[in-house]
């Protein structure tokens, strides 16, 4: 149970970073932390004690962990890679235009 709570704490750290940090790069890092905590959550669900990796092998017949969440996590990592790359390039473009990484100074749009 404690491990789920730690995972939730990681999620909260991510949300805290997104809400309070002013640096664009730190916001991206906080988003990544949030994503990792969600992935960790999925992997934890699938974990079984004394179970092997989910690969079919000759002559091995022991219980496997659930392979589906691992596939989901792989997919979600790829998606996060795409989003993070996009965010990083947006930040670079924003720096070209505004000469700052501080989100409170990037306010050409109102509200």
């Amino acid at each position: 149970m404690i491990i789920y709570l730690l995972c939730f704490v990681l999620f909260l750290v991510g949300i805290y970073g997104v809400i309070t940090k002013r640096d664009l790069v730190k916001i991206i890092l906080s988003l990544a932390i949030m994503g990792y905590s969600a992935n960790l959550f999925l992997i934890l669900f699938a974990y079984k004690k004394s179970a092997l990796y989910p690969i079919l092998e000759k002559g091995v017949d022991v219980p496997m962990v659930d392979p589906l969440p691992q596939a989901l996590v792989l997919t979600s990592i790829v998606i996060e890679l795409g989003t993070t790359a996009l965010l990083v390039s947006l930040v670079a473009k924003l720096f070209q235009k505004y000469r700052t990484f501080d989100i409170t100074k990037i306010r050409r749009l109102l509200g």
Binding site: L81, G82, A85, V88, S89, A92, K93, F95, Q96, K97, Y98, R99, T100, R108
Partner: peptide, 20 residues
Amino acid sequence: SLFLVIWILSGLKLEEGEEA
């Protein structure tokens, strides 16, 4: 696609661009 993402990100320059 992974290499091209890195390639494009490595080509981004922070120096150019006008002042805000």
